[in-house]
Design a protein around this nucleic acid. Structure first.
Lengths: 102, 102
DNA sequence: ATTAGTTAGTTACTTTATGTAAGCAAGTGT
DNA sequence: ACACTTGCTTACATAAAGTAACTAACTAAT
């Protein structure tokens, strides 16, 4: 029984284990989308969504692109690093299908 | 682009996406262990650990066993449902090794 | 018999995170 | 000028988490 926990794992967990972060990534795996669409589908408040997207951008997981249309369109999408979380999300999906009851 | 999110996935996420929950499960995958050992290795406060262990027991993920020795020994371990999270944890580990820098 | 030490918590209080709802900037449409 | 859009931010209220002291139940030592 090891006394210590891998710091990389710990960092990954402190990211994914944050409220809403997983749901936001899961939602973005469906394709690039704008702020208010994530807000309504995920059910997170704009205040927190804004915070999370900034964190995820900082971590290189999410990319933000501005299209100066009218009204302005800003699209959030996953980077390579973000997309690499797909198999992980699939695992959670699989687990939930087997073990979670509605 | 789907408008809705699978409720089972959502429930799994609200569990695993809770602060400390992932770390506690990860730690318990190393084997059954007692309260204060989890507390120190994971670095979670006793107050929250107590709360989480109750939730996880309720969800059927963690099992609590009392050994009336001196001083009393109480061991927490994973149930079958809890152990089934191993591959998921391995995925997070794998991802963190590839993408997280210390 | 009193004092100290053990584990597994709980309790009261403080700090941090999140929710809620209103407001703002920058633009178009009427 | 005024309403309407998106993508936020701000101020304030509530919920969650951290901290440290305390308790229960027992042993071991003084």
């Amino acid at each position: 029984m090891d006394k210590t926990i891998c710091p990389k794992f710990e960092k990954a967990m402190s990211l994914l284990g944050q409220r809403w972060t997983g749901m936001i990534i899961y939602q973005l795996l469906k394709g690039p989308q704008r702020f208010c669409h994530i807000e309504t589908t995920v059910g997170v408040s704009g205040r927190v969504l804004s915070e999370r997207l900034k964190d995820l951008e900082q971590e290189g997981i999410v990319k933000r692109e501005v299209y100066p249309e009218t009204p302005v369109r800003i699209e959030y999408s996953l980077t390579e690093k973000g997309l690499s979380l797909q198999s992980l999300m699939k695992e959670i999906e699989k687990w939930s299908e087997t073990w979670v009851e509605e």
